[in-house]
């Protein structure tokens, strides 16, 4: 049998260490492109929030605050499980790795479930810009803009979550195939980085969308 490390080492690299470090660097660079992608939306949101604070607070008051807060906690727990999955991979404990990956995936699904319930409630309240939007306040145009950004940003985030679920599924599959070991588990680490990053984005989304108007209910 060939050494699994030798098999995993691509021909352009000299050593497993060089390969791991390069992949990690590549992933982090990818993550900063994600920072800039969401950053564009954060910038636009900030500009409009600064110009129309009252309308944006009013929009924020229409959020399902506790669902958002619980979802934040849910996502943090999934991040913890992901961290534990990477930890298990580093120790070469494949059973535990699979267990934590499954847990991460399930908690991620809980998050998406809560998120889509919220979307449904907004639809029910006629707060879905472009499809059905009803608001009687004088600032209706800007309340609608708040919701445009809400759906754009949480939607983009949810899209990243769905992709993340797919990646974690692939990692689980490879774990069960026995592709990872104490010496080679870079893909799990990279998937973890991506998952934690998506978590981080949500932490900010919670802060800008749910918090400012929560006291107005």
């Amino acid at each position: 049998m060939a050494d699994p490390i030798a098999l995993a080492l691509r021909e352009q690299f000299h050593s497993a260490e060089q390969q791991r470090e390069t992949s990690t660097v590549g992933m982090w660079i990818f993550l900063i492109t994600e920072v800039m992608l969401f950053g564009g939306l954060f910038t636009a949101f900030s500009v409009y929030r600064m110009s129309h604070p009252a309308a944006f607070d009013q929009g924020s008051a229409d959020m399902e605050f506790w669902m958002g807060a619980v979802n934040t906690a849910v996502l943090i727990c999934s991040s913890f499980c992901m961290a534990m999955a990477v930890h298990s991979a580093e120790k070469g404990k494949n059973g535990r790795l699979a267990f934590f990956l499954i847990l991460t995936i399930l908690i991620g699904l809980v998050f998406l479930g809560i998120k889509f319930t919220e979307y449904y409630l907004h639809y029910h309240d006629q707060k879905l810009p472009g499809i059905v939007f009803h608001d009687t306040s004088p600032d209706a145009a800007y309340v609608q803009m708040f919701f445009v950004f809400y759906f754009l940003m949480t939607g983009l985030h949810a899209f990243h979550m769905i992709i993340g679920e797919g990646i974690l599924g692939a990692m689980l599959f490879r774990t069960l195939l026995g592709s990872f070991s104490e010496r080679y588990h870079t893909p799990v680490e990279l998937a973890g980085l991506y998952w934690h990053f998506v978590d981080t984005v949500w932490v900010f989304l919670f802060a800008i969308f749910y918090i400012p108007g929560a006291h107005m209910k």
Binding site: M82, A83, G192, T200, V203, A207, I208
Partner: peptide
């Protein structure tokens, strides 16, 4: 609690602390 505009700033500040915790330890 009604903190006026400060609640937005406080929210983002706490989010930044949380994000750095995730980055430093989980990541």
């Amino acid at each position: 609690v009604d903190l006026g505009n400060f609640s937005f700033i406080a929210g983002v500040a706490i989010a930044a602390v949380k994000a750095s915790l995730i980055a430093c330890f989980f990541m």
